[in-house]
């Protein structure tokens, strides 16, 4: 389970970083979303992975650490707000600048020589 879990987190981070480096605002928003999913999963795992353990004392023989769950909840809420803001900002940037390139007027793929 740990292996599968860490591979998931790793793949999500890799996708997120790749998308952020695309230097176009909408892929970046998607990348940031993926990154925040990965972060949420990672935070959750910091309390160790366990099955059938309640997060409340006294309901079960064995219990899970409740703190990471509270942290994830906070991180989700904050991440959601930030994603909403970055979506709005990207739409505004698209309208103001006439394109969705983050760094310059030039198309990013033309600069680094990637095929369409």
């Amino acid at each position: 389970m740990e292996l599968l879990y860490s591979i998931c987190v790793g793949v999500l981070v890799a996708c997120g970083v790749f998308l952020i480096l695309r230097a176009r605002s909408f892929p970046i928003v998607l990348g940031l979303t993926m990154l925040s999913y990965a972060v949420n999963l990672f935070l959750f795992a910091s309390g160790r992975l366990s099955i059938n353990h309640a997060a409340i004392l006294g309901t079960n023989e064995q219990y899970a650490d409740p703190l990471p769950q509270a942290l994830v909840l906070t991180a989700i809420v904050i991440g959601f707000a930030m994603t909403a803001f970055s979506v709005i900002l990207s739409i505004r940037a698209r309208a103001d600048l006439g394109n969705d390139y983050v760094n310059s007027e030039q198309k990013p793929s033309a600069r680094i020589g990637v095929k369409k």
Binding site: G16, L32, L35, V39, F42, S46, L71
Partner: peptide
């Protein structure tokens, strides 16, 4: 991105 790294480090 900084916030994401912050959370990873906290975790």
């Amino acid at each position: 991105v900084g916030s994401a790294i912050f959370l990873i480090s906290l975790g």
